[in-house]
Design a protein around this nucleic acid. Sequence first.
DNA 1: CGCGACGTTGATTTGCCTCAACGATTGTGG
DNA 2: CCACAATCGTTGAGGCAAATCAACGTCGCG
Lengths: 196, 196
Amino acid sequence: MAIYDQLKAHVKKRVTISEEDLEEFTARFKVIKVRKRQFIVQPEFISRSRFYVVQGSFRAYVVGDEGQEHTIQFAIDDWWISDYNSYIFQQPASMFVMALEDSTLLQINYDEEQSLKKQKHVFEKYFCILAEHTAAYMARRVIVNLTKTAEQRFEIFLSRYPDIVNKVPQYALASFLGMTSEYLSKLRKKRILPKG
Amino acid sequence: MAIYDQLKAHVKKRVTISEEDLEEFTARFKVIKVRKRQFIVQPEFISRSRFYVVQGSFRAYVVGDEGQEHTIQFAIDDWWISDYNSYIFQQPASMFVMALEDSTLLQINYDEEQSLKKQKHVFEKYFCILAEHTAAYMARRVIVNLTKTAEQRFEIFLSRYPDIVNKVPQYALASFLGMTSEYLSKLRKKRILPKG
DNA sequence: CGCGACGTTGATTTGCCTCAACGATTGTGG
DNA sequence: CCACAATCGTTGAGGCAAATCAACGTCGCG
């Protein structure tokens, strides 16, 4: 199935694996299609699945004490997304994960993942690498949030994820970067007209 | 060896494992002792090992563009510590990891860990769980940093890690929480005298 | 066409930082 | 064991980056 090719490539890039095993791996995933604004994770519910984005875009966010939305993660083609804490510990989620456009996903649920991991060393290794990369990425994000100003965080994001910047709503990006959308708007203006 | 008991307990709490395998596992670790102020990780050098703290305390920090130190992680008894990005990707470190007091560690180096992982499923599983928990913890930290005020971050830390608060220098805690030590001092005062 | 969501802009406010000065504590060499 | 320096925490005055508040323009969509 052509729809699994992308995920297969994702796996092959991270572990050495036979075509046979790849088939067995992807067979555990269900293809799902969601429409813009649809939720795939909601607070209070346990996130029983994690998702690989074949095509589309998503936004994970929490709602703060005063009703403000804080974006925790974006995901576009070839990325994984979930409420990490909810999925890993099988506890109630604290996030919304919402489609920013009509999208196609591959879904695997928790028990299937555990069963895959038990079944073959190479499957466990792949998920292990996913977890390590997630941890490393999150650690870098903590560092950036602690050490950089709002303007620097915007610049860093611009240079590292230029394709995401224009694909997501401004207020979502602002809250991802830890600032208000008004302030991001001002930074953006300042950037286009750098003459003081 | 009694010195390995603590690590064995750490492993047993996370995976089901035979005493034999446990022996084989801990045999790969080297006991090292370091003195206060000694570095176990330094920027530019590749962090070839990760460390399990048997007894003592550590602080991982980066130095910002203007020379300010930002604490990324603390570790006390029964915690793991490393420059995660440096260790996982075997790239030059960006952090210092320094002993806050005379301490005892168990050290495993990267190649040994890889070899353990290949050797037995249960070893891979343990490290996988470590990575998942690290990722989940880091995700929670990102959320707190995005959604809470300095005062709230302090309160959260106080309630979750009361034993660490009194064990580490104030400036280190302040920079961990993303504020200056002056400001943390004021919050602390405000807390003792809550009468406006 | 008209409404609601989104981005922009300016005025004002504020949470937290910077700077500076001062005790308290620790450590160190004589 | 004491003097002295160095390190650390505290306190206050002043300043700035970013938030808040408010008003308006624009666009997509029912």
